[in-house]
Amino acid sequence: MVDVAARPAATRPAVSPVAAAPARSGRLLALGGRALHRSVALLALAAIWETVPRTGLVDRVFLPPLSEVLVAWWELLRSGQLAEHVGASLTRSLTGLALAVVTAIPLGLLIGWYRPLADLLSPLLEVFRNTAALALLPVFVLILGLGETSKIALVLYACSWPILLNTIAGVKGVDPLLVRSARSMGLDHLRLFQKVILPASVPTIFTGVRLAGAYSILVLVAAEMVGAKAGLGYLVNYAQYNFAIPDMYAGIITISAIGLVVNQLLVAGERRFSTWRVDVTTA
């Protein structure tokens, strides 16, 4: 015997084979229309970027038309320079992000779980959290030198906060009823943590990782503008120094593209980890 509600959603009417072909082309059209709708703003930006320098509204030396920038980008790609800079940047930001993940998540779990530790550390966390990462760049350079270490350390530092704070929030936000229920079954602390607290906080933790992913590129580019011999930040800064303006814009476009891709990947990952959360958000 079963309640009437929540039947499987298998009642969708089947499409007859005759109607299928026009329906499919219609759906393709709708898909194309939506894609157009979503890219129209970007296309407009590209068009403006192309025409405004050409009509002389702005000095084309400072803002070359998009086509020239793309040509410069293609040249950078062909010469292998772009790959080198992207490789250098990605290595740094991914290393920093990975280090932040492996240090901040366990630390956040500990702080979220042990209240005394949270009370002890929270004033310290507040101070550091509100200190802009880039303000500390000179300190990192002073102590760790100009090499890779200082840049990775800066990324690690910047990425740690969103992960740490989200992990703490995730652990603290676990539904107390679930904890009560698990405790009533006699679970000890370790198993309670492993079977309830950890899985319950995974979505929140992953939100932190996604934010950190964005930060990792943001702060790295800035760090690379100060004393680096490779990397996208270096490329942008160096190109500007040498008045290779199209190269500079090519570097900027690449940074945006990477940021976009990283974010999309992490959003997809986040969605995968939190499918069960629909319940929480709708109820």
Partner: peptide
């Protein structure tokens, strides 16, 4: 124990 709010693990 059976709770009013079910207390099922949503994952």
């Amino acid at each position: 124990i059976v709770f009013q709010q079910y207390a099922l693990l949503p994952w």
